[in-house]
Structures are given as structure tokens and as C-alpha cells.
Design a protein around this nucleic acid. Sequence first.
DNA 1: GCATATTTGTCCGTATGTATA
DNA 2: CTATACATACGGACAAATATG
Lengths: 228, 228
Amino acid sequence: MSSARSAASSQGDGAVLSRAMEAAAEIRGRISNGELKPGDRVPEAKLAESLGISRNTLREAFRTLSQEGLITQVPNRGACVAIPNINTIIDIYRVRRLIECQAVSEALPRHPALAQMRAAVEEALTHREQDDWQSIAGANIRFHQAVFELADSPRLNRLYVQLATELRLAFGLIDDPEYLHAPFLERNLEIVELLEAGNTQEAAAHLKEYLFLAERILLAGYERLDRG
Amino acid sequence: MSSARSAASSQGDGAVLSRAMEAAAEIRGRISNGELKPGDRVPEAKLAESLGISRNTLREAFRTLSQEGLITQVPNRGACVAIPNINTIIDIYRVRRLIECQAVSEALPRHPALAQMRAAVEEALTHREQDDWQSIAGANIRFHQAVFELADSPRLNRLYVQLATELRLAFGLIDDPEYLHAPFLERNLEIVELLEAGNTQEAAAHLKEYLFLAERILLAGYERLDRG
DNA sequence: GCATATTTGTCCGTATGTATA
DNA sequence: CTATACATACGGACAAATATG
């Protein structure tokens, strides 16, 4: 047993992945699909065994995840899956409004990301006919990823991946995807069409209102959570 | 030998620092003050010994720094201090224009960050009388940090810290702070005064032009670097 | 309030893979 | 092509901090 397989350790790019990066990806997945829920403790020993890696390697993965905001580490008390609180939500939507609206408002005509936006909307509309809200949520995330890509900035794209991951945690807490995503299908379509028509300013205004509403709905869900 | 001193491992917050976080901070410092220059190789074994920590612990620090973009890790060839290339510069300034200009344009009147902006400008003006360009560079970084803070977003503030660190690497490559920072002292002052007068739109326009110019100057310095 | 068990933080020694001399 | 150097990864060990009885 024990071998150094296919080592490496550049960031998210792709290419070769170190064991630690594989582990980080695996944990990310378990969080995404609900296997690990916000607040769950993540003991080093057990997880390392379950992943078939050593504790040392797992700790490297923890550093990555901690910096992404997916887990929180408290001194000598280990790690647990992060619980996005209201401040987190507010901050994330503040960032999204600032960046997404500006990206839309300065979008170049016929930008490649526009096609991705339309594709995501069409996909969501298809899934709605089957009431597949899980897939709709995914399509919605891709829609906004495409919005970020309008800005043509690798760094902003990376930022979005992190925001989206944190948001998925929050969505998981609410656990009613129809309630969360239903109001936005038509709005996504409107925004795409405004952009395709070259009307960037109105598209940005729509998006801003949209993001305020989304924030409000999510925060309202949180409040209901606190009461019972 | 070997003891667990004052363990921990939350992110940059502060509080207690793990050995790994201390190491990361120390390396960050060595890069900032020029002890480590872009492109320098950073061998695990030597550095671990020099810092008085084990390789495993150092590797945790490397993960952190790698994710911050301060070092680059290539598969099985170890780590070296990141060399910001032209694409990096272009991307960083694209991000800064998008965020800083929007932050200024939506700045609230009498926002606390405004006082920090003015303080940074005054400080820079004082240092200029002594031709202390190192300190002027620092003040300039604080100026733009304050601009980011106009947006009231912890996540954007963290983003700026990362951008600034990468930029410092690039500035270090040019190594002529007067050339880099001289043109911007008066402009900083103008922007503060426009903002204090409540003229957010004009301030944002000024800042946009400013950031385009800064990018151009830095890129020009790069080009000269390649030739000579 | 105290003794014990658990878990973390850290280190060492070592094996294996990859790139370069 | 072999040899060397170094990075990746593993397992085991122990002290300190925390949780538990």
C-alpha cells in the first residue's frame, strides 16, 4: 500500500491533480449532494480513512476548503461544514449585484457568454416541464456563471465558483428549490433577450431588481427556519 | 522535541495562529520585502528547516499561498514565487476597474472609508517631500483598499488583499517606484475631493481613466523588461 | 472539580514517482 | 540510460487541547 500515484498541486485549473486536490473535490461533492450537511463535524481520522488517504494529506485538502469558505476550522476543535449565516447571504448578494450588473451593463455585443446564458435558460425551461427543480437549480447557477463570464476575467470567474458553492450550502438549508427558483425562470429569459437586443442598460436594471428579490426570498426562508 | 504550541487553523481572521499560518505569514513577508523574488524556487526541505517546521506543516502553508496566487506549484517540480505575467496584470486591472469604479459611483456620502482615503493621500504627500517612494507605494495600496471598502463587503475586501499582493509582485519586478507611483498622487487627491463633494459619477470616471493609465504604465515597464 | 478518553497539531522516517544531470 | 535530486504521499508517534464521564 501507499504510493504517490499521479502527484501535482496546481490550483483548480485542471491538468493533473494531487491526492489532496482529489480529496478536496470529493468532499466538495459530498457537500453539494447533501451527503454532508452544514454544521456536520468532519473528523480528520474517520474522513481520512473513508477517503483512503492519510491524515496529513487530508489536512492539506482542509486548508483548501477552509479558504473557499466551505468548511470552518476552529483551533483544536477540528472542522465542520460551514453554516452560511445571514451576513454571508447579504454579502454574497452585495458582491453579485455589483459585479453581475456591471458585467451586463458593459457587455460586448455577441459575447460568447451570451449563448451560454441562453442555453442555460432553455435548459431550465425544459426541466420545468418535468418539475425537475434540482436540474433547474443547476441551470440557474450556470446562467449566472455565464453572466460573470461577460466580464472576461478569470479571477472573477473563480470568485463566482466560490460564491456559488457557498450559496448552494444556503439553498440546501432551505430545501425547497421550487420556492427558491420558480420566480426567476422568466426573468432570466427577459434578461437574455434584452442583452441579445443590445439593450445592456435595461438588462442590468432588470438584473439588479432580480438579485434584490432573490436575496429577499432567501433571507425570508432563513427567518422561517429560525422560527421552526 | 516537537510540541503543539498554540495550535489553530482558522483563516486570516487573526486570533490564534497555527504553525502553518505563521509560516505562510512569514513567507508572505519575505516575498513582500524582496527577500524572495518572483521566480525564486522554494525548496520544501530547505525552507522547512529555515523556518524550524516540518515539511508536512510547510506544505499546508504552501497550499494557502498557492491559492492566494503568491506561489506557483508545478507537478513534482515544487514551488516557486509566482511571476505575474502580462495576462495577470491585464486581468487584475480589469477586476479593479469593474469593482473600484462601481464602488465609487455608488459610494454613500460620508462613508468611513472616505476618511481612510484622505488619510492615505495626505500620508503619501508627506512622504513625497522626503522622496520616500517605498512608503508612497504603501500609502497608495491603502488608498485603493479604502476604495474597495466603500462597497462594504468583506468578500471584496479579501479579494483586494489578494490582488494587492499579486500587484506588489509585479511592482517588485519593475523596481522603480517613482516611475510607477509618481503620476498618481495628484489624481488620488482629486478623486477624494470629488467624492467628498458628493460627485460620485465624476470621481468614478476619473478613477477609470486612472486605472487604465496605471495598467498602461505597468505593462510598458514589462515590455522594457523583456527587451533589456 | 478531577481523571480519562478523544481529537487535533505537529513531527519524523520512509517509500515511490518524476524530472534532470 | 543510469543516477541523482526532489516532490508527493504514507504511516506512526507524541504532546497539547478539548470533550466526557
